[in-house]
Amino acid sequence: MKALSHAVSDAAVIAWRNVIKIKRVPDVLVFVLISPIMFVLLFAFVFGNSINIPGGSYREFLIAGIFAQTVVFGATFTGAGLAEDIQKGIINRFRALPMSRSALLVGRTVSDVVYNALSLLIMALTGLVVGWGISSSVLDAVAGFALLLAFAYAFSWVMAYVGLLVPSVEVINNASFMVTMPLTFVANTFVPAENLPPVLRTFALWNPVSAVTQATRELFGNIPPGTAPPEAWPLQHPVLYTLLWAVLLVAVFAPLAVHRYRTSGRRA
């Protein structure tokens, strides 16, 4: 019991440490608050007029995709933060403290939920300004945001593990793009997945980012009436499929990351 309460309070201390940085570190502020606004505006005005969504508006279609993309990009923070802790040597301070072995990682992933929630809030407000809206119930809308955050949380465990493997912050920032870009673009985020060429199409239909996006669109009521129902199983059950991925990612990567944290001493 005491061990559990320590694990929770230790993780809370670490999360607090990371959350403070939103106001202290300009990079974080820009990444969390400014760049999401830019993404919404860019896509809404640059592509908004050239991509047609049958029976609906591209801006409505687009917002859920941008939400999904932003929270996936946000996971890079988890990895970069941990890589920085290793690079600066502060991880050895933590490892020599009688704190819970999972606290650094749990605290980091939890603080990233806070970052993501702020990003989503800012993007939703920007979206409302450019003509996006929620046409479902409040409960559905909340479920949509919760699903985005849940998937983002799970995905940040992947990046946590990667962050503990790589030698520097620069490496993770560059390497993660090679994963997050295809993951968020070869999907139904910005164009309907059905329009993609065959191989990419299959990838997009089974890509969990597509499912998050589809689920969010449904929960926000952003699917134009009369749209043909999706043919692929993941997109027919987007909430279930997203949650399955979330559980899978945490089940695989959380133990890997904690193990890596416990055993990876600085080489001496």
Binding site: H6, K88, G89, N92, P98
Partner: peptide, 22 residues
């Protein structure tokens, strides 16, 4: 390598360590 968090104040750094010592 001074294992302190640059973005926290000196006070916050020590409070954090103290809390992690419970």
């Amino acid at each position: 390598f001074a294992a302190v968090d640059e973005h926290l104040t000196g006070f916050e750094n020590l409070v954090m360590v103290g809390r992690l010592y419970h």
